[in-house]
């Protein structure tokens, strides 16, 4: 699973431009399912036909990133972003557009800044991507407004049982979901790899209509803000403390029956788990549990430090815990209880 996660993490797939991720996942899941299809939004569905409850498990393919809005006379690219703090993107390597044109996000050298400037936040409008173009005309040979911009962070293991890379939110979910498709379950099972989660949970809104699930589960990479100054409460989740179970977030209040089923499954299988002790941030389950006639929705997450920045850190044991918990929930038909 880690090898596949490396591939997934290093694929470029900014919200609205998930095609590379979709192509890879389609190839991976086609041999595992009865049918694989997409909808007009771009979601990828992997269907294992069955009887009984309709169970849908989602992971989103998109990642935070940027898009070219214009080219300056100097040949530098102006851009805008979704889901990113402008303070975290300065001095990073990127690729632009379909041809992966390499570039960097530069900023004025410290020597040329006033003391006041050094303390001022650089906004997206103050920053540019530099591809080495001579001028605007030259730049337009390689890129154009509307081209997506992604970070190029390499995935690797680090520290004590950890790994780092970009887009762990939510390629960890994608990697687990592909793995889950290798098993058979006593239900009508659809894995949905959604698009545009980071720009307003858009893909999930159509996924729920196309699948009409009775029970739904999202697999996520979630907040883990363990900076030394933080109290345990502020960290939301902790690395290496197991699968994260949400009771409530910015989009969903998880029904008690779902919460109990997940907790019991973890306890019975001796899988480490923790609560998501914070309610900021939403995910695909928001629109899913409110879609159509409604369904029972739950969220399982892998804690990821520094999500929505060019590089995040997560733990192999947490990744495994989420996988095992999701698999046990499905294998043991715990969805029948919710």
């Amino acid at each position: 699973m880690l090898e596949r996660l490396k591939i997934l993490s290093e694929l470029y797939g900014v919200s609205g431009d998930e095609r590379r991720v979709r192509k890879y996942i389609r190839e991976q899941v086609e041999p595992l399912c009865d049918e694989v299809y997409t909808d007009r939004m771009g979601n990828l569905y992997a269907h294992k036909k069955g009887v009984g409850k309709k169970v849908m498990v989602c992971a989103h393919m998109d990642e935070v990133g940027m898009i070219v809005t214009g080219v300056l006379d100097s040949g530098l690219l102006a851009f805008t972003a979704a889901g990113l703090d402008s303070r975290a993107i300065i001095s990073k390597r990127v690729v632009v557009g379909k041809d992966d044109v390499p570039g960097v996000i530069g900023s004025k050298a410290i020597h040329l800044q006033s003391m006041q400037e050094r303390k001022t936040v650089l906004q997206m409008k103050d920053l540019n991507v530099d591809i080495g173009a001579k001028n605007k005309e030259d730049a337009l040979k390689y890129v154009k407004p509307g081209d997506y911009i992604s970070f190029t962070t390499k995935f690797s293991e680090m520290g004590d049982g950890l790994f780092k890379g970009k887009a762990l939110d939510d390629r960890v979910g994608c990697a687990i979901l592909i793995e889950l498709l290798k098993e058979n379950y006593d239900c009508d099972f659809t894995a949905v790899f959604t698009v545009m989660e980071e720009i307003g949970l858009r893909g999930a809104q159509t996924a729920v209509v196309n699948v009409e699930p009775d029970v739904a589960l999202a697999l996520e990479g979630t907040l883990c803000n363990e900076l030394p100054d933080n109290s345990r409460r502020k960290s939301v989740t902790r690395l290496n403390e197991g699968a994260v179970i949400s009771f409530m977030d910015g989009g969903t209040i998880v029904p008690e029956s779902m919460l109990n089923a997940l907790k019991d499954t973890a306890a019975k299988n001796d899988i480490p788990w923790q609560f998501r002790q914070g309610t900021s941030g939403a995910n695909d389950m928001g629109p899913v549990h409110q879609g159509l006639a409604g369904c029972k929705a739950g969220v399982l997450s892998v804690p990821c430090r520094y999500i929505h920045s060019p590089v995040s850190i997560a733990s192999k044991s947490d990744l495994d815990s989420v996988y095992r918990l999701a698999k046990a929930f499905l294998k043991e038909s715990r969805f029948k209880e919710v």
């Binding site: 990113l84 780092k164 907040l223 803000n225 502020k234 939301v236 929505h308 850190i313």
Partner: peptide, 20 residues
Amino acid sequence: KGVVGCIPPHLLNDSDKSAA
């Protein structure tokens, strides 16, 4: 290998984001 962490935007208010 090291990573310089930053707080995810979900947990920041406007005044947090206005300080470098």
